[in-house]
């Protein structure tokens, strides 16, 4: 069980040079929890803080405020060097399988180096390292003998991502954070990687944090999991995945879901689908109001002044976990539905 409480991240301003920018508030008080073997999907457009959240969870980035608790241990209460073993049990699967493996080393080397650290801790010998490498590669659906002595460049994107997952398993993680883990993989291979992740969840009770902008993939990983919608570092809607897909109440969630392409001929667009063009580059507009107000077609004067907090959405149809941060929550039907045909695929 991992609990994240009021997590804040501020990137300091950079002055001078081509990349100068003001201070960036990447996360603004995000609170979430992931149970063992649970699944949490985080969606949002690029720059909303998804990657930052994942990297903080995996201990690769510091945080500016809030706390993370693992199995009841608040990490803030530990000295720095004692936090690392906790963070190590949260492994990040990177988006790009082409840079996630060292091109100079064989797959065996990639597996053996972290395993050697484990072997030392658990007093195991070299045979254990080799056998465990093979075991883990087999577990992620690769042919161990054919893969071990290959270099990454000889593997396809899908195979590399499997190796990356196997390598993450070397440290017996509690949680895998998959940051856009299938977006750079060929369409035909994506589904099997998603299958692998949900399989690990069931078989090894590894929690999955699935960071994506493809809501359908999030649904495929865990229909029963939770979905969290981030907008500029803030949770704007949260709840069970299928419930949010079918009855989103926050205008930003509705925009995200509307953006999912409709397979014409197989599906028809939801009646409330709306693709906004205006304000698509309008990320500024600080103020004290709703962060989404500059782009929201339902904004009122109140939205400009007051900040909506995350509150439970209570109508008869919803479950207790459904939360939103909008003054005017209205469920809208935006997602595509399959057309009923007798010879459907």
């Amino acid at each position: 069980m991992i609990e994240v409480r009021k997590l804040e991240k501020v990137y300091p301003p950079v002055v001078g040079g081509l990349l100068s920018h003001n201070e960036v508030r990447a996360l603004r008080g995000v609170s979430l929890s992931i149970s063992d073997g649970g699944a949490l999907s985080i969606i949002g457009e690029s720059g909303c803080g998804k990657t930052t959240f994942g990297r903080i969870l995996a201990g690769l980035e510091s945080y500016s405020g809030g706390d993370i608790a693992m199995d009841g241990v608040a990490l803030n209460s530990l000295p720095n060097n004692e936090r690392q073993p906790y963070f190590r049990r949260i492994q990040l699967i990177h988006q790009d399988p082409y840079t996630a493996l060292n091109p100079s080393h064989t797959i065996l080397h990639a597996m053996a180096v972290p395993l050697r650290i484990q072997a030392k801790l658990q007093k195991k010998n070299d045979d254990w390292i080799l056998n465990r490498s093979k075991e883990l590669l087999a577990m992620v659906g690769l042919d161990p003998v054919g893969t071990l002595y290959k270099y990454p460049h000889a593997l396809s994107g899908g195979q590399r991502q499997r190796v990356v997952i196997a390598r993450a398993l070397t440290v017996d993680p509690k949680i895998l954070v998959a940051d856009e883990a299938v977006s750079m993989i060929d369409v035909s291979m994506r589904l099997s990687i998603l299958n692998l992740l949900s399989d690990l969840r069931v078989r090894l009770r590894i929690g999955i944090v699935f960071i994506t902008h493809d809501v359908a993939a999030a649904r495929y990983i865990a229909k029963d999991g939770e979905l969290c919608v981030l907008y500029r570092g803030e949770v704007v809607e949260y709840g069970q995945t299928d419930e949010i897909i079918v009855r989103p109440v926050h205008p930003y969630t509705q925009a995200m879901l509307s953006a999912m392409p409709v397979l014409r001929g197989l599906e028809e667009a939801g009646p409330d689908r709306y693709i906004p063009l205006e304000g698509m580059d309008d990320f500024e507009g600080q103020g004290s109001g709703c962060l989404f107000a500059p782009r929201c077609r339902h904004a009122t004067a109140r939205c400009q002044e007051q900040h909506p907090d995350l509150v439970p959405w209570d109508d008869r149809l919803s479950s207790s976990s459904h939360h939103h941060a909008c003054f005017y929550p209205i469920p809208r039907n935006v997602v595509a539905r399959p057309i009923n045909r007798e010879n459907a695929l």
Binding site: L60, R88, H94, T99, N102, H105, V113, I117
Partner: peptide
């Protein structure tokens, strides 16, 4: 590159990362 970050996440020491992961690519 993310393999360096992955190495950090997996608990490799700095020496291992610099000489074991980065150096071979410049070799």
């Amino acid at each position: 590159r993310s393999f360096v970050e992955a190495a950090r996440g997996l608990g490799l020491s700095r020496r291992q990362i610099v000489f074991g992961e980065v150096f071979p690519n410049t070799a």
